[in-house]
Amino acid sequence: MAAAPGTAPRTRGRPRSDLRIALLFIAPASVGYVAFYLMPALRGLWFSFTDQNLIGTGDFIGTANYERMFGDDLFWNALWVTVQYVLINIGVQMVLAIAVAVLLHRLTRSVVIRGIVLLPYLVANVVVALVWFWMSDYSIGIVNVVLEEIGLDRVAFFGNPATAIATIALINVWRFLGYTALLLFAGLQMIPQQYYEAAALDGASEWRMFWRITLPLLRPVLALVLVISVVGSFQIFDTVAVTTEGGPVNATRVIYYYIYQQAFERFDLGYASAIAVFLVVLLAGIAYFQLKIMRSDRSDLA
């Protein structure tokens, strides 16, 4: 209905602030964030300066936990093992995920195939780990039976220090590949089809189109997916916990498993918190650095 003449639009009192309604909308999420993320994180930070155990209260001991950490060979070993895991896991996973995403994008529109690609991701981590552990059992695992059938030697995948961490990394590539590929696939769909049509008219090969069109235009999405994957990859825990438990010797004692052992096997919550705080700082640094060098805030599509 048109405004009646004489009733001038009320500009006074406007703009009415949306702050109130905005606060209302974010309130549930904020409460959850404060209660379940911020408070525990601050408590963890405080714990890292105390000799807190699982039960009872701890006393302030300054930076003793941090000093102990920097002198702890097992801590540095855990960090190194985790880095090995991340390099293998992310390296292999990213290359394969880009390949799968491009294949999905250029070759098929089938929702069924996209669904199949995602299947491993729908299986729980612990189940994936246990099933692969069974399958690569030295005596009765199907993988080793097949290896022997085709004339190769059996491999002690989880028991050999040289192969254990790579085995765990590749199992998680298997699980997360489809998920990562679909994220990248979504990014690929934002690239206008005309570029490919124009390139095809000019007689460019698929290979050339990939390097000149797909990869540069995918960069911001790629950066984001990479950061999420790397941070997620650093958090490797469950696969180790249900298979090797850090062994053989210390070959798979990743940082999260080491933190878990300190907190829930030795009840040393203070020391565990110190390592966790270190990990937060490290991951924040890595994420910032990655986003910076990949210029993820700028798109070449603009």
Partner: peptide
């Protein structure tokens, strides 16, 4: 006796025993 690598890559020797390997 199997190597420690083999031992650590197995869930339990029971399986190898039942398969006639031990």
């Amino acid at each position: 006796m199997p190597s420690v690598d083999i031992a650590l890559s197995e869930l339990d020797p029971l399986n190898g025993y039942l398969a006639g390997r031990y």
